[in-house]
Write a protein that binds this DNA or RNA. Structure first.
Lengths: 195, 195, 195, 195
DNA sequence: TATGAATGAGTCTTCATTCAT
DNA sequence: GATGAATGAAGACTCATTCAT
């Protein structure tokens, strides 16, 4: 018997749809709450498809986390480009941070990965990725310590946003970053001297 | 339908044991993953006891979160005392932050509450509590903006610790806090010693 | 330790309160749905009291059913008195039926007992009680068959009321009863001759 | 988490089996007492099958009640046919009532629906269905009032049967119906033969 | 290959009943 | 005797996973 219209033949696309749906759901309801059924419904695929492409739900979750990390990476490319264009002054970084808070997707993706990483060591490396890249970006100009301090502050800003309705004002972020990165510090050379 | 020996009768203690067990498990595996059975096993009480004292699992979770918040509060009292004794210089604050990273309990408790608050608006206020109190503590000396920036940085430090095996060095924290809190930095030399 | 005020010493009254509460609940939510906790709450007695006076919940239910039957009996006395005063003409009977539909208590009590009797043979006799007494009341005047037919019709009226919002009009009842009891039948003697 | 052999794949049949089992059990033990486990055992399907086909036990009950109503409807068709063939004289109606008391299924189905309707308003309409249709059948010949009175009497007969071991004799029913439906009674002599 | 029916383990929750206090 | 804490059996329901089709 022919059960309705034939499904299009594109396993890769379907796999991607499933992973994307799972990633969205992880962000929205948390990794623990995601089920095969939810993913199938969100992706618009039959239940069987979710088990066809991934042996276990945990495998599907892992793939989704990797997808989330890629989203974060994509944002990082934008950051890299902006810095190449406009420099890495505290004002530019602050603007980037402030704007990124509008981009719920990437920020939430990062948050989801970090949150899950607390209880799942396999996700640790993924969770560190964004921070590490950001530090690498700032290191040439500001040195490792200042770069890292800025990155830690930026992470703090993100978390602050997650549990508050109002986000920090851009000038506030800029001032703090300026202090951390050395704009108003007398001896930036001392910091960059730190290996 | 009653088999086996009954246990002692001390409702208060039993309730406390159950809440403590639930709080521990929330910290260890996350609030979503906690089940009645896990709590009962951890607390060493029969399954029925966990539902006897709390109408729903959600009620139990709430009680556990309150207990976690109290742990955080207890730590806050220590912080307040230390500041009263030794002042609120960046060095003192940095020392407090560094030491607190040893106190897995309170830090993890805070992290658990904040993490859960992302998906549960009812926990938002609880999650903001520690940060807000700490800001209040620093505000008289440093003003609202610097106090808040310091608090955000400290939160960032905590999260950094949660997804990394190594924690930031104390001098690193101190330098960053000194920069954020103002120019009255007492020991800038220490910062350059950061590895 | 003295736990609050001493309870009054009247086991009989307390037992009655419990049974009354159980009877009310059986009428309201059905015998199956009644629990110890519900009864205790309704009666305003501690949970333990409900198990103190009755070995099992089933025993309590039985007592409640007996109480319901007694309520029905009490109504029967009123009926008997009315008939003694005003005769047992179809008009009087119809008036009694019509009025009784206002008395939710007794009607519902009867309904509850009959309903439960369908699945519980032990309640059969109780369920038959009201009907049988009513037949006995009418038999001397109308004979067994007409009395029984009237009683069956009256039961039908009651059930009709239970599943409809509007109740039959009094004249409708009176007309039907008159037909069944013989007012407009030419040979009432024939009916009474049937033993 | 899959052990043992799978069963045949015929969703429609399986759904029907489950509903039928539930309907039987509702008739036998009452709607309140029915559980998933009972239904599964009766239908010979695993526990999970009962929740696979119906989101909640209440949905399953509803489906079962609809099935019971269909049984009643089926009987109604037989009644309609008989009346078309043999007329709607009291004797014919009485014969139908008397015979129907043998058909435990339909009568019990009706009783189960009516009983449940007392506590569940959603079932009211279903419960009224048989009565209403029967009234419609008799109305053209006897008028609304007499038809309704007959219907109410017939309901009373059914209930009488449910709480008694002996059922009313056919002549008894016929006589009563003749009285209720009018003076064109064809065989009043039969009534006096009632034991 | 793709689908969704099938199964039972495991979840939350309620409650009769027992019995320590 | 009176009270309510204690316990586990049982109920509704969810869902990962398997596998027939």
């Amino acid at each position: 018997m022919d059960h309705g219209a034939r499904r299009r033949r594109d396993p890769e696309a379907r796999r991607r749809e499933i992973v994307t749906a799972a990633a969205e759901l992880i962000v929205e309801v948390g990794a623990e709450a995601v089920t095969h059924r939810m993913v199938a419904a969100r992706a618009g695929v039959p239940l069987g498809a979710t088990t066809q492409y991934f042996d276990t739900l945990d495998d599907l979750r892992s793939a989704a986390f990797r997808a989330l990390a890629e989203e974060v990476d994509a944002r990082l490319d934008g950051v890299r480009q902006t810095i190449a264009d406009r420099g890495d002054s505290p004002a530019v970084i602050a603007a980037l941070v402030f704007e990124s808070m509008d981009d719920a997707h990437a920020v939430q993706a990062d948050r989801a990965v970090v949150t899950a990483a607390v209880h799942d060591p396999r996700l640790r490396e993924l969770a560190r990725h964004l921070s590490d890249r950001l530090v690498e970006l700032l290191e040439p100009t500001y040195g490792a310590d200042r770069a890292r301090a800025a990155m830690i502050f930026i992470d703090g800003v993100m978390w602050s946003m997650h549990i508050r309705d109002d986000r920090p004002a851009q000038p506030f972020i800029e001032t703090a970053l300026a202090r951390l990165l050395g704009d108003s510090v007398s001896t930036p050379s001392a910091a960059t001297a730190t290996p």
